[in-house]
């Protein structure tokens, strides 16, 4: 008696049932590993080396930063100095710039003053809208 053998049919299609799982796994992987790096800070362009310019003293306002964070303000040619809290710098600079649009804000920092104090002063200078800024170290 002849026995009929049932042939198994082999599908010629690629199984796609797990594609959605793989796609979601990849999605979750990249969602969790992605880092959006945003660089933030106070940008400044340093002068080129040996690029020194003579500037008229009347166009400079000095902010001399002491180690304790207090700031001495000295205007170019004048001998008169005033000690101010750094939070006043923005106001002082705004009013001085209104009178002289060529004004350069020169921040002179004591070598032993913590970096945060220099950032505080630079922050105020930036907030005032000054774009001519000079960073110097106070010479002993």
């Amino acid at each position: 008696m002849a026995v009929l053998q049932r042939k198994e049919r082999v599908s010629d299609e690629i199984p796609t049932a797990s594609m959605a799982d793989i796609a979601f796994l990849l999605l979750v992987f990249f969602l969790t590993t992605t880092v959006f790096n945003e660089e933030k800070g106070l940008p400044i362009v340093l002068p080129e080396e040996a690029e020194e310019q003579d500037v008229s003293a009347k166009n400079i306002i000095f902010f001399i930063l002491r180690p304790d964070g207090s700031v001495i303000v000295r205007r170019g040619e004048r001998v008169l100095e005033q000690v101010v809290p750094f939070t006043q710098i923005e106001i002082i600079l705004r009013s001085d710039m209104a009178a002289n649009e060529n004004l350069i804000a020169a921040v002179k920092t004591d070598p032993f003053a913590p970096y945060k104090h220099m950032i505080n002063v630079l922050d105020e200078v930036k907030l005032s809208g000054a774009d001519r800024i000079s960073l110097q170290m106070l010479e002993e």
């Binding site: 660089e39 933030k40 800070g41 106070l42 940008p43 400044i44 362009v45 340093l46 002068p47 080129e48 080396e49 930063l65 920092t109 004591d110 070598p111 032993f112 003053a113 913590p114 970096y115 945060k116 104090h117 220099m118 950032i119 630079l122 922050d123 960073l135 170290m137």
Partner: peptide, 29 residues
């Protein structure tokens, strides 16, 4: 830079950057 680092160290870095020609700098805050 760490906020407590003395400024002379930051100044040395900016001088070195000037010497290298890389003058576009950001003080990250």
């Amino acid at each position: 830079g760490d906020r407590e680092v003395p400024y002379n160290q930051i100044n040395t870095i900016t001088e070195q950057l000037q010497a290298s020609g890389a003058v576009r700098v950001t003080f990250a805050t």
